[in-house]
Design a protein around this nucleic acid. Structure first.
Lengths: 339, 339
DNA sequence: TTGTACGCGTTATCAG
DNA sequence: CTGATAACGCGTACAA
């Protein structure tokens, strides 16, 4: 390369890196050679010498969940424009895998790390806190974690959903959670409790539906058969939203005629479903973009105090929620299961 | 590191790399030091010296489409078990961006590249064909491309969908495509035509719905208002499936009472929707896993002949398709649009 | 079996 | 402004 342009390697480096000014004539020679050879600096060598990595490591609980991959999309979009790349790994919702994958990611000596822990314990914490690289914890935050964090305001989001139902006159509200082991689910529940307290209502009913469609269907069926029908349901995750819709269908309950539903996470199919689904929208792309903003400050501006960012969700009101007064007249009767 | 274990750097390298046998006592010393320091070989340095990268670059048209991210999920799962990592970029469905991102990926000198082109022209082809790294083209294959390729059998998939409807007695079938600019969409259409020919039916009706929900709704509405109602619809992408459901809802057409629907791609919400949606399921994770199998053979076994892999889709029969004979008795009347 | 020395491609330094 | 050279951390050939 250098020989082809008939300049020194140092000059090539200066032209490509743009760190030092170079004589236009030499610049032209170098650029011609670059074009002719399709030359590009080797990032491994560059990183080794400069100690700067221009790569961000991302560890998510799953690559099959569009919530996580949308965060990655926002992140990639953000870092890409500044010459960074992302290296992605999945912990498969498993703590041991999380550690293993994080160790692998760390061996790249990334400029920064974005991690969405599999659970609240955040067992991989020690690997990060000892390390050199700045890191941001996103979405699933352990309680009282001191670090850079980016997440949505889960409590506010759920309060908003609840207030919407209460304003429509609903009093018998069922909350369907995935698992209370996750702090953000607990935060959502507490947002609902707060709303209930404010409206002088008793505790909301709760079903912990688990993490698969099968367990969710089973537990919802059990609950519906043992309890009176609620007039409103709040689903606390995208997954439980689907499970609730399926379960209501199986029990012959119509939305919103028999029961109103507020879902969590906003997907395109919710705008197509019959009825369209009222849902809490999380600013997913923002989550990714802000995670980068956090890292960027540490990498380039050398910030050292912790940043805790909480983004607001919004309520997308659609066809699945209706006034309680307009419910079909058959209240508080247990519906029959339809096989 | 080496000083801490009181051995030479070569011994450390041999212990970690496991390439040469080392005295157990020294192994123990090294391992103790490794543990104490949390030491890991620097991949950049390792790569520079060995010339071997243990990283796969992945370029997809979008990270917001679960079809693509599921492929990534399958790929990550596969490569991870053999010590590889993936670096991911999105071309944002744009040809210029595709080139730019591919150039960036190439500068990592990856051991292999997995690319899902944004379109049939596969403009980035020259960057790959000149290069050193083996590459696999996945899903959106340019016609007559000579390279390692992994994709589904689109024609067979669509034939299967069509045969299902025909077997149910449907004759007036509407095909909703996103855009005929993509070869795999054209292949799906030709699969349907083949089925029609076999059943001695005239050409199927076709709507090219575009790539956004807005254009799709608009074009479907226009079509429904200008044409007689079909008894069956085949949607050729996940996106058009959603658009069709929305549009049918807006026009007051019930599934499957007024019209049967076969969707493309199988998502969890299709099992929850009312009715549940009959759909073509693409083996997404397999696509990713097989892309790795392809690369792996080239990287490790040095295969040189091209491999063209076509995976079979399957038909998930659910509630959105019914016998044509059981349709509501109001055939071939244009339905009124419901604002 | 272990240690020494060199070189991978790049960037930083420093002398010209 | 340009070029020679050292050094980044690791893998490997070769010497001990």
């Amino acid at each position: 390369m250098a020989v082809m342009a008939e300049v020194s390697v140092a000059t090539v480096s200066n032209v490509l890196g743009g760190r030092k000014p170079v004589n236009p004539a030499l610049v032209a020679r170098v650029e011609a050679a670059v074009k002719a050879l399709g030359y590009q600096a080797d990032r491994a060598a560059s990183q080794l010498r400069s100690g700067k990595a221009r790569v961000i490591a991302v560890l998510v609980p799953s690559l099959d969940n569009p919530f996580f991959t949308s965060i990655i999309a926002g992140l990639e979009q953000a870092v890409q424009s500044e010459g960074y790349d992302i290296i992605v790994a999945s912990s498969n919702n498993d703590e041991r895998t999380e550690r293993k994958r994080l160790v692998a990611l760390l061996s790249w000596r990334p400029a920064g790390i974005v991690i969405l822990p599999t659970d609240d314990k955040f067992g991989a914490r020690d690997l990060l806190e000892g390390g050199e690289a700045p890191f941001v914890v996103v979405d699933r935050l352990p309680p009282r974690l001191v670090a850079d964090t980016v997440a949505v305001d889960n409590q506010q989001a759920a309060t908003m959903a609840c207030e919407h139902l209460v304003a429509l006159g609903h009093r018998d509200i069922l909350v369907v959670a995935s698992t209370l082991k996750l702090a953000n689910i607990r935060a959502r529940l507490s947002g609902i409790r707060r709303c209930f307290k404010k409206a002088h209502l008793p505790e909301p009913e709760l079903v912990e539906a688990g993490l698969t469609l099968e367990t969710a269907s089973e537990r919802l069926a059990t609950w519906f058969e043992a309890n009176d029908r609620p007039t409103g349901i709040i689903a606390l995750t995208n997954f439980t939203t689907v499970a609730v819709i399926a379960s209501l269908g199986q029990h012959g309950l119509r939305i919103p005629k028999d029961v109103s539903l507020v879902g969590f996470d906003d997907y395109i199919w919710m705008r197509a479903a019959t009825p369209t689904i009222t849902a809490i929208r999380q600013p997913v792309e923002q989550l990714g973009a802000q995670a980068w903003a956090c890292l960027r400050e540490r990498i380039e501006d050398g910030r050292s105090n912790n940043r805790t960012l909480r983004l607001q969700c919004s309520l997308q009101i659609r066809g699945s929620t209706a006034r309680a007064a307009e419910l079909s007249k058959n209240p508080r009767i247990r519906p029959k299961a339809v096989a």
